[in-house]
Simulated scan of single mutants.
Amino acid sequence: MKLRKIIGKKLKAIRLGSEMTIQDLASRSGVSSNMISRVERGLTIPSVEILMKLARVFEKSIDYFVEEVKTTHEVVFTSSGQRDTTIYENNSNMLTESFTSGLRDPQFTSFYCTIPKGGKSGDDNMYHPGDELIFLLEGCLQVTIIDDLYVLNPGDSLSFKSHLPHQWKNIGPAEARVIWTLSPFTVI
């Protein structure tokens, strides 16, 4: 099943299960009702920032919306190349492989990310509850937090409170490979 259909189906199911209208969800998440409708109908894939805003309303991680997991487990082992993958078709075309897919109620979300040359989080800052850890394996990633600029090279890491406005961009000559870990999301 295509990612946009998975996200749309899960968003509509959890919204209806919570007895919320699209307008209710729009008001609680800060995402426009038009965008929510388009996502639910499988017409678009939301940006990571929008997905985080929607996930926060339901106290879920973004994994909940992007994974097509039939069962969950207390222990999950996945071989290289066998992880659930997602391609975000926004400004970054970032490919992620989830380390936590299938884990029952994880308290964090962790991904192996491949960001193409020039890929970026978007033109607007992101911010969300929790903590974030970026560990750069290959390439060169520029991260801006508020007005501070950080350039990560292989082996560098950056941890920060995710409520601080931030954005990132691959400024290297090739793909960047990153391990990205996010703490749980809570309702503000």
Rank of each mutant, 00 (worst) to 15 (best):
L43Q: 11
Y88G: 09
K12V: 10
F160E: 07
D147A: 09
L54N: 02
I188H: 10
I115C: 07
Q167N: 15
E49W: 04
K10N: 06
S162C: 02
K53Q: 03
P46I: 00
S101H: 08
K161N: 15
T96G: 12
S110Y: 03
V143G: 11
P173K: 09
L103Q: 00
I6H: 01
D148I: 15
H128S: 05
R83D: 02
K5L: 14
T114Q: 10
K60V: 02
G119R: 11
G119L: 04
I188F: 08
E68V: 02
G155I: 01
H163P: 09
L103D: 07
S101W: 00
W180E: 12
G119C: 11
I134Y: 14
T109K: 10
I146V: 15
A13Q: 12
V66Q: 01
G119H: 03
K9D: 10
R104H: 14
G8Y: 06
A26I: 01
L149I: 15
G139S: 04
P116W: 08
T44Y: 06
I134A: 08
Y88M: 13
N153Q: 10
S32I: 04
L25E: 00
T21Q: 02
K10C: 09
W180Q: 06
D63K: 08
F111W: 10
S37R: 06
R28F: 05
V57Y: 00
N34E: 14
T114H: 03
I145G: 10
T21E: 06
L141I: 15
N125W: 07
L182K: 13
R41D: 11
N34G: 11
H163M: 09
Q23H: 06
N90L: 14
P184H: 07
K53L: 05
S27K: 13
G139N: 04
W180D: 09
I145A: 14
Q142W: 05
L164H: 12
S101D: 04
F58S: 02
K12R: 13
S157W: 06
E74C: 05
M126R: 07
E68T: 04
P154V: 10
Q82K: 15
E40V: 09
Y112D: 05
K9N: 05
I171G: 04
K60T: 03
E97T: 04
T109D: 15
A176G: 01
E67G: 09
G118I: 02
V66M: 08
E175T: 10
R38D: 12
T72A: 00
